[in-house]
Amino acid sequence: MSVTPLAAHPSVRPAPAFRGRIGRDARSGHYAVPRRYRLHLSTADPDGLRIAVTHALLGLDRACPVTFLPAVPDCPDGGHTQLRPLYDASAHRYTGPALAPVLSDDWSGRIVSTHGPDIARDLARRFAGGRAVLYPCGSESEIEAVERMCAQGIEQAAQCAGDAGADAAGRAAALETLLATLGVLEQGLGVQPYLISDQITAADVELWVALVRLDTVHRHHLDADAVRRVAGHPALWAYARRLAAHPAFGAHLDLDGIARRHHARCQGLEAAGSAVQILDWAAHAADGNSLPSQVNRP
């Protein structure tokens, strides 16, 4: 599938407090050493779910251990008490929320990065070691285009389409943007199994997480007719179902956690679309017992 890059717009992700990178060698300061780094993730959060799937596809449970965080942050500002010591050690008098995801350096006890896309890229580029090629050579612009398509054409459009406080014309326009985006993806996935390659790439991780959120979060604020129109893309949802059955994807799908996080934060009104589930994710997801035994999950 050929993906046309969209014009750049401000990201819907919050600005990261830390944005260090894993370099090629010791001259970069942070470089790839097995078990030097640790991930702190909540898979109820979209960035956390993307990183968890990437980590699993790369088979990095021994090289880069993971600490899983509660689905619902325990601080009023949306941060995690468990992460506060890392933030305090990494920035003098840090006053912001202790947000996940976090990639920390066990050697220094400090944070390397809180920027989800950078963390995923560095895991794939510096630790893959011949495993899954999630960022094929020459594919960067296509992967970035998919990221923008998911952020703007799915996530942002679905939010606006379900915003009860917006005017009817604005909601209708946002729904049309969402359906147009899904239509483009439907065409591509109708003729090939994955987005930009004959194997799973980072673009597929991005789209799958966006589809999970569309059905488990945004659907609750859409009317029933809108959800039926969203569901009317059989190739796209068959693709989502097929990836859910892959252990790297389905084993990290915390449906209860996503629901609890959504209800804890959401101030929108529930609409009739809540009753029109698109996929039975629990039935299609791979067995969660395949998660590595050394992973800490609350």
Score class of each variant (00 low, 15 high):
R297E: 01
G138N: 11
A91K: 12
G129Y: 13
D223Q: 10
P65W: 09
S104F: 00
R131H: 09
R38C: 07
A56E: 12
H80N: 06
G29S: 14
A52M: 06
A272D: 08
D198P: 03
R260L: 13
E142S: 15
R35M: 08
R260I: 02
Y194S: 06
L60D: 14
F68C: 09
A32I: 04
D280R: 12
D77W: 07
T67N: 08
L222G: 06
H221D: 05
S108I: 12
Q82T: 00
D223M: 10
A91T: 04
Y194P: 01
A226P: 04
L211Q: 08
S28W: 14
A248R: 13
H263D: 12
A174N: 07
A286M: 01
L179I: 07
E142M: 13
G183Y: 10
A272S: 15
A15V: 14
E142G: 15
L39H: 10
I111V: 12
P70F: 00
T95G: 07
I119F: 13
A282G: 08
V146N: 02
A285M: 11
L214V: 06
V191M: 01
A63E: 15
A283W: 09
S2F: 14
L86G: 04
A8P: 02
L83F: 10
R260G: 02
V191T: 13
Y31P: 12
A91M: 04
V12S: 12
S28F: 14
D25F: 14
A202F: 11
L243I: 05
Y87W: 07
R171A: 09
A132K: 09
H246F: 01
Q152E: 13
L291C: 11
A145Y: 11
S2Q: 13
G257A: 06
V102F: 05
A283K: 09
G250D: 03
Q267G: 12
E206R: 15
R241A: 15
R228K: 10
H221I: 08
A240C: 00
A145M: 05
D204W: 07
H220P: 00
R260E: 06
M1H: 05
W237N: 04
G188T: 03
V3F: 08
A128L: 12
L57A: 02
P14C: 02
R38V: 00
D122V: 15
I258A: 05
L39F: 09
H40L: 04
A63F: 11
Q152P: 09
A128C: 13
D45Q: 08
G129H: 13
A264H: 01
R50G: 05
A210K: 01
P117N: 05
S139M: 14
A283Y: 01
L123I: 13
H220V: 02
G79M: 01
S274T: 14
R148M: 15
A282T: 09
V217P: 01
D215I: 06
